[in-house]
Write a protein that binds this DNA or RNA. Structure first.
Lengths: 197, 197
DNA sequence: GTAATTTCTTATCATATGTAAAGTGTTTTA
DNA sequence: TAAAACACTTTACATATGATAAGAAATTAC
C-alpha cells in the first residue's frame, strides 16, 4: 500500500540534503516543492516495479530500500539505500528506457518523490537546480566507480568484512539473503564466511 | 615520451564528439580550445601515473588506453577506452583526491587534454558547457551502472563471449592478460575459457 | 500462542578457479 | 639477426564456491 500526502517536515529534510551539494534560492526550493510528493510505503513492497521507466528521483528520509532484479529466476540485489540519500535507477532515468530493476523498501519508509521530467525542465528556469543535481549525479558516478573497484578487486569475504566495519547497521536491518546477492555470492557461502570468525 | 603540440584536426574531432551531447557556440568552442592541448604518446607508456590527482579530461582520438592499478602487487585493469571516447579517472576528478589508478596507452595514441579546473570555471561563463559535460558524465554514470550489472550478473565466461561478440577488435588490440584482469580472472582461466570452444 | 512460513546454518558432494611450473611461440632490443 | 624478454597455453594439484538437502532458528499469520 502506498500513501501520498504532503509533509512539510519531509520536504525540509530533502532541502537540507540538497543544500549539502549547492545552495538553493527560495524560488528554486518552491519550484522543486511543486513538482514533488511525499510518500509513505509499507515494508517489503515495491516502490517501482520491473519494466517501469524511471521518471522519479526519490529521497529516502526514513527506512531502507534496495534495487533488485531477476537473473535466471534468482533475485539479485544491486544496491541498498539508507536514510538521507537518494534512490534512483540511473540507467533508466537517463536513457528513458524501461528498467529491468525494481525498487523495494525493506522497512516502512518515508520518501520524497521528485518528478524528473519536470525537474529537467526547471534546469532552464533555475540554473542553480541544474548545477545542484549535476553535483549529486557526479557524486553518484564516484560511488559507482568505487563499487566497480570493490567488486572487481576484492573478494566477497573482504567486502563482507568491509561492510560489517563501515555499516554494521546494514547487517541488523537487511536480511542476509539480500546481502549475499549484493556481495555476489549465495546465502550458503555467506553463512560459511560468517561462521569462520 | 610525451609530445605536446597543437593539432587543429584533433581539436575538431573533439568538437565533433562533444556536439553529440549538446550544441556548442563558436565562443564556447574557442574557450574550450584555449584550455586544451593535443598530446602524442608512445605505446605502453603511462599518460597519468598512480598517485596523481586527475585534473585532465582526455579525449582519445587514436589508440587504445586502459585504467589500471595494483592489488597485492598484481596489475589489474579497471577499464579500456577506444577511439572517439573520453578517458577520465572520475573518482579522482570529482573528489580532487589522488588516484590509486594510472592511465596507460597500449598503442601509439593521439589525444586532446582538457584542463578540468579551467573547464569547471567556464561553466559560469558558458552555461552550455556545464550542460554538455553534465550530459557526458550522466552517460558515464549509465555505463558504469551497467558495468556493475555486467560484473555482478554474468560469469567471466559470459562476459568474455559478450566482449568477443560486441567488440572483437578489443581482442586483436589488447593483450589477453589485461582482458583477463578486466574480466576478474587469471590469464590461466581465460586460456581455459578460450580453449573450450 | 501456536502453526505455518521464512530465514539462516550446516553438511556433503561436484565443479570451477587459482597457483605454480614448464613449455611454446612471439615480440623487443641491441 | 641473435639473444633476451614477454605473452600465452597446458598440466597437475589445492582450494573455494555452488548446488542440494536437511534441520534449526526466527518471523509472520491466524
Amino acid at each position: 500500500m502506498l500513501y501520498l500526502w504532503y509533509s512539510v517536515s519531509l520536504m525540509n529534510s530533502l532541502f537540507q540534503y540538497l543544500q549539502n551539494f549547492y545552495p538553493l534560492s527560495k524560488e528554486a526550493q518552491k519550484a522543486i516543492s511543486e513538482i514533488s510528493q511525499t510518500v509513505l510505503i509499507k515494508k517489503n513492497t515495491d516502490l517501482q516495479s520491473i519494466g517501469h521507466t524511471c521518471k522519479t528521483i526519490y529521497f529516502l528520509k526514513k527506512g531502507v530500500a534496495r534495487i533488485y532484479y531477476f537473473k535466471d529466476g534468482i533475485d539479485i540485489t544491486e544496491s541498498f539505500s539508507f536514510e538521507n540519500n537518494i534512490v534512483v535507477r540511473f540507467e533508466s532515468l537517463f536513457t528513458s528506457q524501461p528498467s529491468k530493476k525494481a525498487i523495494q523498501v525493506l522497512e516502512d519508509s518515508e520518501l520524497v518523490a521528485i518528478n524528473s521530467p519536470k525537474l529537467f525542465k526547471l534546469y532552464d528556469q533555475f540554473p542553480e537546480t541544474e548545477r545542484l543535481f549535476r553535483k549529486i549525479f557526479e557524486a553518484a558516478l564516484v560511488d559507482t566507480v568505487n563499487r566497480v573497484e570493490s567488486i572487481q578487486f576484492h573478494t566477497a569475504e573482504e567486502r563482507y568484512k568491509h561492510l560489517m566495519h563501515e555499516a554494521p547497521d546494514v547487517l541488523k536491518r537487511v536480511p542476509l539473503k539480500y546481502i549475499a546477492s549484493y556481495l555476489g555470492i549465495t546465502p550458503v557461502s555467506l553463512s560459511r564466511i560468517r561462521a569462520q570468525k
